[in-house]
Amino acid sequence: MIKQALLGEFLHEAENTRKILKAIPDSALDWKPSEKNWTTAQLASHIAEVYNWYEPTFNQDTFDMGKYEYDKGDISKAENILTKFEENVAKAQHALENSDEATYFNEWKMEMHGNVLFPPSPRIQVVRGFLYNHLYHHRGELVVYLRSTGNKVPGLYGPTADDKM
């Protein structure tokens, strides 16, 4: 039952993520709002990468970022980032569909070289916070990046200022 609710939100929000990633033109990839921020390409690539974290979140009690390896590929083209997103979202959907609800309240944590990065929490809380909400946060940033570079923003939860009413 919980799995079906998570899956419904996952599928809906993956489509919203797809829309925003498709809206990125190559001309905006190098832009960043300040020296402290990622470029548009780095932010979009990170959004695509979050979907790569589903498998270890659902299938490991400890996610060791010290051992984690990820090939983001060539992020110099928006279509490459979208391709990586599609690969990762398919793997994430598979991990979610095959997850065991009996483990949703098991303790989960993230470490790096023995240091706790994400304190022990019920897996379901991690799924909602670390996977879902984390992604929504970065999508919101990407909306600002698109707007700041003069690009249109797709409607995710209804029309935007770019949509004709």
Rank of each mutant, 00 (worst) to 15 (best):
G155M: 08
W108E: 10
L7S: 09
D30Y: 05
H138R: 08
I20P: 04
Q42I: 09
S45G: 13
E101C: 07
E49R: 09
K32E: 02
L117V: 07
L117Q: 11
Q125V: 14
Y157E: 11
Y132C: 09
A102R: 04
D26C: 05
L131S: 04
Y157F: 14
E49P: 03
L7G: 03
P33E: 07
G114F: 07
M110Q: 10
P120M: 06
F130L: 13
N133W: 05
F105T: 15
W108K: 04
S76G: 08
R123Q: 07
A48C: 07
A161C: 06
E55Q: 14
E86M: 12
T39P: 02
W53C: 06
S148A: 15
F105M: 12
L142R: 03
M165F: 15
M65G: 07
K67A: 14
E97P: 00
E79K: 13
E107A: 11
K36F: 08
N133V: 06
A90V: 05
K32Y: 03
A23P: 15
K91V: 15
I75A: 06
E55C: 06
G73T: 03
G150R: 04
A5L: 15
H46W: 05
Q60I: 03
Y54R: 02
N80P: 01
E79C: 07
D100Y: 02
M1A: 15
D71T: 08
E49S: 11
N115P: 01
E35C: 05
T160H: 10
T149H: 08
L21E: 02
N106S: 11
V89A: 01
V127Q: 02
E15F: 10
M165E: 14
K72D: 06
A78T: 00
L96I: 11
F10N: 05
N59A: 09
L131V: 03
W108P: 06
D26K: 01
K164I: 14
M112N: 12
A102V: 04
I2M: 14
N106I: 01
P122I: 05
H138V: 12
K67I: 05
A41N: 02
K72T: 10
R123H: 08
G66T: 04
K72R: 15
N115K: 15
F58H: 03
P56Q: 05
L135W: 05
T160L: 11
P119V: 12
K22V: 03
T83Y: 09
R139E: 02
I124W: 04
F63W: 11
G150C: 08
G66E: 01
P119C: 10
L43I: 02
G155S: 08
F10D: 00
F58K: 03
Y104V: 07
D30V: 04
P122S: 12
E49M: 14
I20W: 00
E9C: 07
S76I: 00
Y157K: 06
I20A: 01
V126Q: 04
P119N: 15
A92P: 14
D74T: 11
A102Q: 07
Y70W: 12
N88R: 04
Y136V: 14
I2Y: 12
M112P: 01
A41V: 00
E79V: 05
F130M: 13
N133Y: 07
H12S: 15
E13F: 11
F118C: 10
V127P: 01
L82P: 03
I20Q: 02
K91L: 14
G8I: 06
N59G: 11
N151W: 02
